[in-house]
Structures are given as C-alpha cells and as structure tokens.
C-alpha cells in the first residue's frame, strides 16, 4: 500500500470513528434526557466536518484510480490560498457570532446568551464551511 492510499485509509477510519462515536453519545444523552438544541448543534458540527472530509477523500480515491497524483504544485497552492482566505473570512464570522450572539440565541435557542458549546459549535461549523467553499472556489477558478 503506497503512502497516499495509507493517508486516505486513515482519513476514512477517522471519519468512521467520528460517526460511530456519535451513536453512543446520542443514545446516552437521549436516555438521560439531555438531548437539547446545544447537543444537537455539536452533533451537526461533527457530521458536517465528517461529510466535508468524506468529499475530499472520495475525490482523492477517484484521482488515484485515474492514475493522477493526488497532490501537485497547483493543488497545494489552492490549499494554501483557500486556507489563508478562509482564515481571514473566519475572523469576520467569529466577530459576527460575538456581536450578534444575543439575537442568535434569542431566535435559535430562545435564551438570552449562547453557551460555550453553542458558540464554539457555530464557530467551528462556520469555519469548516467557509474553508470548504473557498477550496471549491479556487479549485474551479485556479490561482496565479
């Protein structure tokens, strides 16, 4: 098994572990009656991140089957540019969560403030989505 295949296998093992780890978590929290919006947000974060990783994993498998290198100088540059741009955009996303948190808490959770789990969950999910959208954009548009 070459290095790339090992990396992809590890990626899917990690995704599977994450998703299977959710099952006992959901069952336990549901049984104890603690499955609330905050916990569901945490579950959603894990599912979204696992899905994004799966999309990238499937793309890499297709590349390997077609005999293409999984990474080259352009794809590495796309990752760098998408990472830098999404970091910059994430700052605004986190600032928006911080400033609008009373409004978000009131609309989504019917409370006065977001608790740590809700704020972090929203922050991490948003950052993952922002990164993924940037990556898709530069994959299509290319970078100079």
């Amino acid at each position: 098994m070459n290095n790339e295949k090992k990396k992809i296998t590890m990626m899917f093992i990690l995704i599977a572990t994450l998703l299977f780890g959710l099952v006992p978590f959901i069952l336990l929290t549901k049984r104890s009656g603690e499955l609330q919006t905050g916990n569901m947000l945490g579950i959603l974060v894990v599912i979204i991140i696992a899905l994004l990783a799966a999309v990238i994993g499937v793309k890499r498998i297709k590349d390997l089957k077609q005999g293409q290198p999984v990474e080259d100088e352009l794809s590495k540059k796309v990752l760098n540019v998408a990472g830098a741009r999404s970091f910059y955009m994430s700052l605004y996303w986190l600032l928006a969560i911080m400033l609008l948190q009373p409004v978000i808490a009131d609309i989504l959770f019917d409370s006065e403030m977001l608790d740590a789990e809700q704020a972090l969950g929203g922050g991490i999910t948003g950052m993952a989505i922002i990164w993924f959208l940037n990556w898709l954009y530069y994959q299509k548009k290319g970078v100079n």
Partner: peptide, 9 residues
C-alpha cells in the same frame, strides 16, 4: 508528474 487540471490552467 502533475494533475490534468494543472495543464488546463
């Protein structure tokens, strides 16, 4: 030794 997309761009 690069991807086809790289040649396209």
């Amino acid at each position: 030794g690069v991807r086809r997309e790289t040649i396209v761009f």
